[in-house]
């Protein structure tokens, strides 16, 4: 029993997460406590969940893209665009009714999804490498976001908009529900239909997948559409959090954090198997790392150094050349076998 837990793909990420939380507890004994204030749960844990919501969302989309051997660099810019569209369309709302809210959400999500579709078309139909294809919108998308906001930070005074990222439902932040919903959607759509299997198949061996009758082009299009959608939702939450439209800085470097979360979660950048729950834990690790660095008084900016080290360690551990050099060939075989059985226990 103990062994099968150890073998689970989620084991190490969860241990790291727990370790980070324990370090926090060491510095701040009230870290894990959760209080009820004004009918809302508050506390550092809730805070991490709430602040980590956008990253978790974007990482969910990124997971599927990476599973097809792709990558989506444009998500940061899509966040900025979606937030700008959402906030700007309610900035001048006259009423406090819900009409403008739904218009804003619909508008932001439709455009974000279309933007994802653009990436998908470039990758699947024109055959541009994913890094290159999504680089275009990484650059231009932020420009478009700034165009929408006029380069200013426009404050929103329309209260209902705050609910997306700042509202509470059943004593929990509403953003947590959004994450749960999108995660559920992603899990259902990939694990209760054959889509997940097709994504993994295309990512693992595109040629053989084609000969088995899978329409890999459409699969790729779909994952980029979904990634765009996720980034759109994330953008809405972020801009609602601060009740403003900020084309300049919203979502800056989110693509890199998201890729990191996916990799920490156990999904290989070489495509194939993907682990949505692992990604969520990866995103939580990144978020709690940030929180920790704030709370124990280390300059916030060292966060980047820590991230760099984490990325390198994870990548080196995934590299067969590194493992054979460091652990020797015998162990390489063992870890390989172990890895494979992990893949079986958690699919």
């Amino acid at each position: 029993m103990g062994k099968s837990i150890m073998r689970s793909r989620l084991f190490w990420p969860i241990m790291v997460l727990i370790l980070i939380l324990l370090i926090n507890l060491f510095f701040d004994s009230s870290f894990l406590s959760i209080e009820v204030r004004n009918g809302r749960l508050t506390g550092s844990i809730i805070d991490i969940l709430n602040r980590g919501a956008p990253l978790m969302l974007i990482s969910i989309g990124m997971t599927l893209v990476i599973a097809t051997k792709g990558i989506d660099l444009s998500v940061g810019s899509v966040i900025a665009m979606s937030g700008a569209i959402g906030a700007m369309s309610v900035a001048n709302a006259e009423t406090d009714g819900l009409g403008p809210l739904f218009t804003a959400i619909a508008l932001a999500l439709v455009i974000s999804t279309l933007v994802g579709g653009w990436n998908g078309l470039l990758v699947s139909r024109i055959g541009v490498q994913p890094i290159v294809a999504t680089l275009i919108l990484m650059v231009a998308g932020r420009g478009v976001a700034q165009l929408i906001t006029g380069g200013q930070i426009t404050t929103v005074y329309y209260d209902p908009y705050n609910f997306i990222g700042g509202g509470y439902l059943l004593a929990l932040p509403f953003s947590v529900f959004i994450v749960a919903f999108v995660l559920l959607l992603a899990v259902l759509i990939t694990r209760k239909t054959a889509l997940g299997l097709f994504i993994e198949s295309v990512g693992s061996n595109p040629d053989a997948s084609r000969l088995a009758g899978i329409n890999s082009k459409n699969i790729m299009l779909m994952v980029y559409l979904f990634s765009g959608f996720c980034a759109g939702v994330g953008g809405l939450i972020l801009s609602s959090n601060v009740m403003s439209a900020d084309g300049n800085n919203a979502g800056l470097w989110f693509e890199l954090d998201a890729i990191l979360a996916v990799v920490i979660g156990g999904t290989s950048l070489m495509g194939g198997r993907f682990y949505l729950m692992g990604t969520i834990i990866g995103a939580l690790i990144i978020q709690s790392l940030t929180t920790t660095i704030y709370s124990i008084g280390v300059p916030a900016e060292t966060n980047l150094v820590v991230k760099a080290v984490v990325v390198l360690i994870v990548c080196l551990l995934q590299s067969p050349e590194f493992r054979s050099k460091v652990f020797g060939t015998g162990k390489l075989k063992k870890t390989k076998e172990q890895k494979e059985s992990e893949g079986v226990t958690l699919s």
Binding site: I71, I131, L256, I259, V263, L269, P299, E301, T302, N303, L304, V305, V306, K307, A308, V309, V311, L312, C315, L316, S319, P320, E321, F322, K325
Partner: peptide, 27 residues
């Protein structure tokens, strides 16, 4: 060296380098 000896993707290695250099300048 990381890219060559451990066969890592340039994208990821230099991404880490980007974090590291930016982080160090803040340090």
């Amino acid at each position: 060296s990381l890219i060559h000896f451990y066969n890592l993707q340039p994208f990821i290695v230099t991404l880490a380098g980007m974090f590291l250099a930016r982080g160090l300048s803040y340090v």
